[in-house]
């Protein structure tokens, strides 16, 4: 049953953590609706950005919202709730892609990252500094899901290397390497697109 408007107005001022405490400590399950309204669109469009299919994204978003609600007691409040939601969303989408064998990570050595030359980085930077939104929209469709996901984590959700490393359960050097590869592939696609113009 929806929360009445007067109660809702007051509750909208509360932080996510305060809402969660009311749900868990006072059993106010109807407040799940506030969390739903705050995060469902972010979850749905994140799924759509990763899998690119509206129907599948709706199913994934459904399962992710249920997972979030059923695991609220596991949220410790040590980080932002939005980050926790993002982590669950990314991991759930990645599991979905893994089941369909659409996610393939290459293994990198830490040394690989250290071996990258400054010239290589500068070239990539030069290309990406000209990237425009219209180009990114097109190029993201061509990017492999594993590259798309790590770039979205870093640049769309502003997650730090450490936060990405915790979410993906991989080392920070591996995150840096995957980010580098993701940017490389994006730069390559951009170069190809500019060549064709």
């Amino acid at each position: 049953m929806p929360i009445d408007k007067v109660k809702r107005k007051g509750l909208d001022q509360l932080t996510d953590f305060e809402i969660i405490k009311l749900i868990l400590d006072k059993g106010e399950k109807d407040l799940l609706e506030i969390l739903y309204d705050r995060y469902s669109s972010k979850v749905y469009f994140k799924c759509l950005g990763i899998v690119g299919n509206k129907e599948t994204s709706k199913d994934l978003a459904h399962d992710i919202m249920i997972k979030i609600f059923l695991n609220l007691s596991k949220f410790r409040g040590t980080s932002e709730f939005s980050l926790w939601v993002h982590s669950i969303t990314y991991n759930y989408c990645m599991d979905h892609l893994r089941k369909g064998k659409r996610l393939k990570y290459e293994s990198y050595e830490v040394k690989d990252y250290e071996r990258i030359s400054t010239a290589e980085i500068e070239l990539e930077n030069k290309i990406l500094s000209d990237l425009k939104l219209v180009q990114l929209e097109v190029l993201l469709h061509e990017l492999k899901p594993e590259d798309k996901i790590i770039l979205m984590m870093r640049y769309q959700d502003s997650m730090s290397v450490k936060q990405i490393s915790q979410t993906l359960s991989i080392g920070e050097s591996a995150v840096k390497m995957r980010l580098k590869r993701g940017r490389d592939r994006l730069a390559d696609l951009l170069k190809e697109a500019q060549h064709e113009e």
Partner: peptide, 20 residues
């Protein structure tokens, strides 16, 4: 620049009504 472009990709829309 990458953050600016990536963040603009997030649509200012709601999830489908039937999802709720």
């Amino acid at each position: 620049n990458l953050e600016e472009q990536f963040k603009q990709l997030i649509p200012d829309e709601n999830a489908p009504e039937e999802l709720k």
